[in-house]
Simulated assay, not measured.
Amino acid sequence: MRLRTEEIEAYLRVVEFGSVSGAARGMALSKSVVSKRISDLEHSLGASLLQRSTRSVQPTEAGRHFYEQARAAMAQLIRAAESLSETSRQLCGELRILAPMSFGTLWLSPLIADFAKAHPRLHVAMELEDRQADTRHERYDVAIRVARLGDSALIARRLAVSRRIVCCSPAYAERAGLPADLDELHHHACLSYSNALPTQIWAFHGKPHQIAPRVVSPRGVFTANNGEVLRDAAVAGHGIAVLPLFIVAADLAAGRLIQALPEEEPIEDGVFAVYPRSAFTLQKIRTLVAFLQAAMSPPPWDVSNAAVKTSVPQPALMLRHG
């Protein structure tokens, strides 16, 4: 039996992407090359590894068993090879990063570009997607998450704090007035983020005499699964939104958005680097985390808009609903 690592790699990617075309994109190969490698692997093993349909590709029972064994073996081979590079203090191999779309395009991508430039022997692959992938089963080395994390089987390293702002456009404030307090949000048009529960988005720190956070569920008139889409809707005057400062800092500084409830403080999120627990953490992950912690301390989106927290709307815009 003759097994080739590129054939095993192709099979692992097909199972993880759920399709030959997805694996081909991820490996920068043609579909025909990936299909040929899978076919050659099945021939060498004398077993069918995949069930193919018009919509997806799923592993057979034998294929699932081989996947688990082969994935662990390949990971061990990669760790063995990469550990050699640590003796020369040069990172090598592949570093796969998953990050949220807006945070990735607005702030993370230039940092990752600088990191890749500093480590030319390291192949960095970054994917932007707002879902929360299972890094234990999908072969991402590290995922960047903007969230409030609870208990997890993963290791989470805090990179920064992500403050959120209740905001709207000056035009909306002129037309509908600004809410006097959280209760008045129920009378306003509000913009909702569909990838999270309202209790996660519209949650505010309690007053000094309150212990529990205050949560409101305002009337939604516009829903999207991307923060930049909601920002554009807010700038266009469609309503009030609670958005991360890293998305709206430039709009607040330019006056395209104003704070709708400057005296209220939404519960902040954390920016985390998340990766699976293991007997040891690869040097490439430790180096990336340390680099991002240094680059985000303090958060650059807070520094560029430091006056936002205490800014006050112009008198013409200090309207109240009612």
Rank of each mutant, 00 (worst) to 15 (best):
Q283D: 13
R219N: 03
C168V: 08
L128G: 02
S83D: 15
R145L: 12
S19D: 05
V289D: 02
G237R: 03
S192N: 06
L319G: 13
Y11M: 14
S30Y: 04
E94V: 12
A143F: 01
A212C: 09
T105D: 15
S83P: 08
Q51E: 14
P300W: 05
I8Q: 13
F115H: 02
A28I: 12
D269P: 06
C190P: 02
I97L: 08
D141A: 11
D269E: 06
T135A: 15
Q293M: 10
T199I: 08
S169L: 03
L111N: 00
A189V: 02
C190S: 09
Q69C: 10
L95R: 00
S35M: 08
K207P: 04
A279P: 03
G220H: 09
V242T: 12
V248P: 00
I112H: 00
I97N: 01
G150V: 02
A233C: 06
E82A: 01
A180R: 11
A81W: 09
R13L: 14
S152T: 12
L122R: 04
D183K: 12
H65P: 03
R158V: 15
S217L: 10
R55F: 08
L178C: 10
F17G: 13
A234M: 06
M126V: 09
R175Y: 03
L317S: 03
M318L: 14
I112E: 00
Q259L: 11
A254L: 01
R79F: 01
A160D: 04
V34N: 07
I165G: 00
E16M: 13
R163L: 14
T105I: 14
I258D: 01
H123C: 04
K284E: 07
I97M: 04
P100S: 02
V312E: 10
F115W: 09
L288I: 02
H187M: 05
R231E: 10
S48G: 08
R79W: 05
I247R: 06
G18H: 02
S48F: 02
I78R: 15
L292Q: 06
A72L: 13
V312Y: 11
A72Y: 09
V57C: 04
S194K: 06
E86N: 13
P262G: 02
N226W: 11
R231Y: 01
C190G: 06
